[in-house]
């Protein structure tokens, strides 16, 4: 489903964020990518939806070589992925419901079906009662749950989360990871980057530890 083969990523200026990274993630697997700040976790996750391109090596997602994809094909790749970011990237001039509707605006679903899916996603993360609120009125944990609802509303086969529990208290962080685990239990492949190794070890899932841009 996702495989990295001898992937390296060098940024302009010569900084090498990833070195010879090789691993693969099977369908339905949940993998925690751990490591300290600057270990290359975010860079690794950005290579999957082609936010960044590898300098060398191959990144294969759902059978497609992401590094070789044309720019016009990238949006269609991203529609099959659910992305959750540390800073959530919510739109604060829209309601909770409208934020979740955003990925459905360019889907083929009818307006009724899109609304139904958006509400189902909000229900899944426990925010249906807040659908008319503005994201600014939500707590940090709720904002992260809203970001998850937006990521899953298109029912992606792969969920990718970059430090989704950063800046959250322990209880909220656990609740966020629990949500990802629930999605994984229904067959969604999940990759979560986190520096909080203590939080993720209790789930007994696969850990991929990065250090200095290499998988340990």
């Amino acid at each position: 489903m996702v495989s990295f083969s001898a992937v390296a990523k060098r940024y302009r200026g010569g900084e090498e964020a990833l070195k010879e990274v090789t691993f693969s993630v099977e369908p339905g697997e949940l993998v925690f990518i751990t490591g300290r700040s600057g270990a290359g976790k975010s860079t690794l996750l950005k290579l999957i939806p082609a936010i960044e391109r590898p300098s060398s090596g191959a990144v294969i997602v759902n059978g497609q070589n992401v590094g070789a994809l044309k720019g016009s094909a990238i949006p269609y790749l991203r529609r099959n992925l659910g992305l959750v970011f540390q800073d959530q990237k919510l739109l604060y001039d829209r309601s909770v419901f409208e934020n979740v509707m955003l990925p459905l605006a360019f889907s083929t679903h009818s307006t009724n079906e899109a609304s139904r899916r958006a509400r189902a996603a909000l229900d899944k993360v426990g925010l249906l009662a807040r659908e008319r609120s503005n994201p600014i009125q939500l707590s940090g944990g709720e904002q992260q749950r809203l970001a998850i609802a937006r990521a899953v509303v298109n029912r992606p086969s792969i969920l990718i989360a970059d430090e989704p529990t950063a800046n959250l208290d322990a209880e909220s962080a656990r609740r966020i990871v629990d949500i990802f685990v629930e999605f994984n239990q229904v067959g969604v492949t999940v990759l979560i980057a986190t520096h909080d190794q203590g939080l993720v070890t209790q789930y007994g899932k696969r850990l991929l530890h990065l250090e200095g841009g290499r998988v340990q």
């Binding site: 949006p75 269609y76 529609r79 992305l83 990237k89 990925p103």
Partner: peptide, 16 residues
């Protein structure tokens, strides 16, 4: 800018 960035991240085409 924020909306455009988010739209690109979640799979909006250039045309959209």
């Amino acid at each position: 800018r924020d909306e455009i960035e988010v739209s690109k991240l979640i799979g909006a085409t250039d045309g959209f």
